[in-house]
Design a protein around this nucleic acid. Sequence first.
DNA 1: GACTTGATGTATGCGGTGCTCACTTCGCAC
DNA 2: GTGCGAAGTGAGCACCGCATACATCAAGTC
Lengths: 196, 196
Amino acid sequence: MASTVKTTYHHGDLRAALIAAAMEMLERGQEFSIRAIARETGVSPTAPYRHFPDRDALVSALAAQGLRDLEANLTADRPLPDSVEGLADLGAAYVGFALRRPALFRLMFGDECDRESEERVRAAAAVHELLATAITRVFPDSDPVDVALGGWGLVHGMACLYLDRKLTGPSVDVVLAQVRASFLAVVDARSSTQRG
Amino acid sequence: MASTVKTTYHHGDLRAALIAAAMEMLERGQEFSIRAIARETGVSPTAPYRHFPDRDALVSALAAQGLRDLEANLTADRPLPDSVEGLADLGAAYVGFALRRPALFRLMFGDECDRESEERVRAAAAVHELLATAITRVFPDSDPVDVALGGWGLVHGMACLYLDRKLTGPSVDVVLAQVRASFLAVVDARSSTQRG
DNA sequence: GACTTGATGTATGCGGTGCTCACTTCGCAC
DNA sequence: GTGCGAAGTGAGCACCGCATACATCAAGTC
């Protein structure tokens, strides 16, 4: 009990407040710094260090949260796809998440501080597993590891390329349509080109 | 004339020296800062600002150089592939570059400061075009845009996932073999699963 | 009910960063 | 020879992550 939002004792539930403030800054597209979120939360610049040993720990907490959000997003009102088209939609949802929350996505994937945070590793593994399950379900005759990594790579790569402006599109919808089309085109490539 | 390596006038060819120092730090896997490369080069901390308006400009110069290196790497003693296997090798070379020069690769792709540097944009476009040409050559019956973006995404995504330790492998060779296998598996997926 | 204790937050300060601005130096065109 | 403008310097600002020493205060113990 007493675990509600009601502030607890000293100044409040700082840890959660810090994560919330950091997440807000990320969503706003702003740079995020320990000192800035401390300011935002109304505590001294060094207060966050009572809850996170260093910046990376905070980043890992945010990334883990983001990975859980991504997983929820990919499963929300969507059964595991059992068609290639359904799989393409799942891929588009993955890219859609990246485009909607670019700064968070970069935090989730753009760094290698992994083995540090068990929470983060577990959340990443859950996303990996979700994708692998969906892909091997649709392509049961392919090597499960090979096709799963390739499929993940395809959507992840397109997400990164659009995020970093190596590819651009006039609107999110157009980009997502492109992702679907590209997924289908690659998966169909060999059978389109009748070659054995 | 006098455009050789011989130092020119005031202190030397600072611009080139700074780029070289920064590149060296990147290869060494170290963080790279304006002040650090100035120190390395033996000039004052603010001297670099005579040659680069800000940090991003230097980053763009490095990224452009890296993109040119990547392109050279992908074309070096390798004709444009005309088989799926050759294309898989090209993809593996792309990932190989990323693994060999991770910090540089992240610089090249991990940021969006594009429209700033025409040089960088052009170098990126050249890489894009090279991949697109190779892919559409091997898959002439697929939509060229769709399959090219998907193919690029696949190798780029796997490069990022391995770079950021979302995927791991015991050795570079094993990773590259995995990239080849995944590329072939995805491209073959639809025709493996006999489904129309 | 006073006392201790340990978790939480503060104050101060170090070394690092990108960057600005006023200054000096010096090669080169005239 | 002289002036000019490009190239380099030095001091300084605001910010950063982080360590260290100190203050506060809820809670458990006698």
